[in-house]
Design a protein around this nucleic acid. Structure first.
Lengths: 244, 244
DNA sequence: GTATCAGAGTTGTCTAGTCCATTTGCATCG
DNA sequence: CGATGCAAATGGACTAGACAACTCTGATAC
């Protein structure tokens, strides 16, 4: 009978050795530098291209490297900090020193799924507006934002949104409604082909998904939004104080 | 001369078709259900095991599936919401209905890197305490937390921390210091083998990294902490109000 | 009955290779 | 001189398969 000493130690995968090697290299190079090609690393490190690519993919996902097909792999710029608070995208961007713009991708009326219905406090199957927008900062795509609002509560919303780019402006001017509270959720996900295309990244790359569930002064839900940010590009920042 | 119509359309990768197929399947099954094995999916969908595994890996990373080596792949439980606010881990856990515990992994005195020094407003190379702890909720590991504090400002800290599990308690009782403000950062990363082992997950799986930079009433930095949570298990929740 | 063990089945890791899409630089042509 | 086209080099997607590590079940031994 063999006694199994240190079973618990999960040995380091080979691809992780490659990753550590690359991390060391990256730390010595300025952003924009070219790193060795996949095929060169394959022979240098005595491993397969698949293994090298796994290490590279993780580093790309963490925002340390950028790959450009046909060209090469480069050291990435540091991530951009994005402050979370209760204002519009435009104000947030301005506070961070960017000029924000918005591109309306889609605005349709559809039936609420069970999940959406519950969040908007309406019946499943009731009409909702689904508004999809691309947020840009200094012209580069930053986030894909999808908003859901009750069609019964905001009749004709789509027409207004097509004319005025700011949804919050429309809510205030036309419907006299203003969000005063919100629950925000933050989680990770992988980019779908659609988001990847819009945000100019790869399908499956890690994303930060910000959900916002906002309420008016009476506590009624106004909208449910989720915004997809590239996880390799952005860090969310929240400022907290002890008294809540 | 061939005119390149719709160059922009990046066709859907094959693995993503597999992923969508699996998502449809998952939506019909309760948590804990067994999904078909990798080899079965390989023949059912007419693809290679590598491609099937890529789809599965993304779904595992998004918390939709759980893989158990030697056993099979199962539909995962929904993610757990974790409220962000300016209290201790223990209080946070209690508010969410968990009984929290902490395991001290390591507590050493070391020299501050440039980054740490800047955050703690001390000189690079000055002594800092590095305290690594495993946070558990109802006995299951939840996060790996690494704190950095100035050794000059909190002499003998390690000894106190070894006796009292709560760092904030020690800061209040022994050093009469209390954090009143904090900047929190949230970003994505991939698990290192060490974190993966401690959190009982796989190397490279997506993580949510919460950074906390806290300050006392005078605006002096007290500590710099980063906590690694499993991105497939947790959603962070922040409550915001309009008046900031 | 109970414990043990072998084997089948599963996921985990890695390899070596093919073919495609895109970029880039160079040679060629006008 | 400029534009064009070609070829090399690069990353992107996928395949088929080997072997390892682990789990579970059923047959067997006691």
């Amino acid at each position: 009978m063999v006694l199994d000493v240190n079973r618990q130690a999960p040995r380091e995968p080979k691809y992780y050795q490659v990753k550590r090697h690359l991390l060391q290299l990256i730390d010595t190079l300025p952003p924009g530098s070219l790193v060795p090609t996949e095929r060169v690393l394959t022979v240098e490190l005595g491993t397969s291209r698949t293994t090298v690519r796994q290490a590279l993919s993780e580093l790309v996902g963490e925002g340390r490297l950028v790959r450009r097909q046909g060209s090469g792999t480069y050291v990435a710029e540091p991530k951009i900090a994005w402050l979370l608070h209760m204002t519009s995208f435009t104000e947030q961007a301005a506070a961070a020193g960017y000029s924000a713009s918005t591109q309306l991708l889609d605005a349709v009326r559809e039936r609420a799924s069970d999940d959406i219905a519950a969040r908007l406090a309406i019946k499943p199957g009731a009409a909702v507006y689904c508004i999809e927008r691309l947020r840009l900062a200094d012209g580069t795509p930053m986030a894909v934002e999808t908003s859901y609002l009750s069609a019964a509560r905001f009749p004709g919303l789509i027409g207004h949104v097509r004319k005025t780019s700011s949804l919050y402006q429309v809510l205030a001017d036309v419907y006299d409604t203003k969000p005063v509270n919100a629950d925000e959720t933050i989680e990770t996900a992988a980019a779908s082909p659609r988001e990847a295309e819009l945000l100019n990244t790869d399908t499956g790359s890690p994303m930060l998904v910000l959900g916002r569930h906002s309420f008016d002064a009476e506590g009624e839900p106004i909208e449910w939004v989720h915004s997809w940010y590239r996880g390799d590009r952005y860090v969310f920042v929240a400022k907290l104080a002890a008294g809540h």
